[in-house]
Amino acid sequence: MNTVLLVQSLIGGIIMGSVYALLGVGFSLTWGVMRVIHISHAAFGLIAAFVAYGCLQRWGIDPIASLVFMVPLLFCCACFVYRFLILPVTKAREVIVSSMILTFGIAIIVENIMLLIWGPDPRLITTWYTSRVFIVGPFYFQYAPVAGFVMAVAGVGVIHLFLKKTYTGKAVRAAWQQSDAAQLYGVNLTRISMITFGLAVGSAGAGGVGLALLYSFEPHAHNLWLIYLFLVVIVGGVGNVLGTAAAGVLIGIITGLSLAFLPYQWVNPLTFGLLMAVLAVRPHGLFRSEV
């Protein structure tokens, strides 16, 4: 076996997996804290990718720099979506099912808006550093994926610290562990859910831009992204931020290695076969479900 190829594909897998993890943590939080399986999560990430692409084409703004206004913008959009669409649905008896149907509808609408605005052609983000590489020994690294990786680590780290260190983050965890008691001690559930949803969608924007640094994308791409989201969240434990990150890297490694050493048509069957094996042995995922 070729060691250089092995290490190179391992690194590629870790980079890919960490970006999926960044896209996945918010999905995991909305699922864990709010019991909402947010099907349009990846679609919001994709919007961010398109907007970043547009900003780059038109004004030459770097995609990562564009997150400075994109994340707050997505946060606000998400608060509106939460207030007027998700909140009424959370009063239903079967929140998980009704929220899935609702957000599936949102995903379709968002996808078609993207089709209308940007058309069906695949886009590729090309910055000044896209074709640049730096070489360490026998390995070469492309700037863009490394930038995506750094962003993913920073993003997941920020969300983790938010949940562990800030009062609002602790309230998010408290609301998920024991919602009645959280309310009795002054937590406004609607407000906390809105913040959770806003942060989740905001981080989806960062994850979407991260994926756009790695791959080309078109308005349907979020469907494939979504499948990977389910994968990382189920393996990582619903609501578990660091578990999601670890699962993302793990799945990235599996995909990266199988891409390098197996025929392409075997990659997804292998990945999802492993998912089924994981679920059969550990029905709650590899890591504990917790916030």
Partner: peptide, 29 residues
């Protein structure tokens, strides 16, 4: 709760996976 009426509910309803310190901090939310 903000008015100062505080209930310690039946069955304790602690934040099970949070630390003792975090549970106390949440009391002062």
């Amino acid at each position: 709760c903000r008015l100062g009426i505080v209930q310690a509910p039946e069955g304790r309803k602690l934040f099970a996976k949070m630390t003792v310190e975090e549970n106390l901090q949440m009391g002062a939310y």
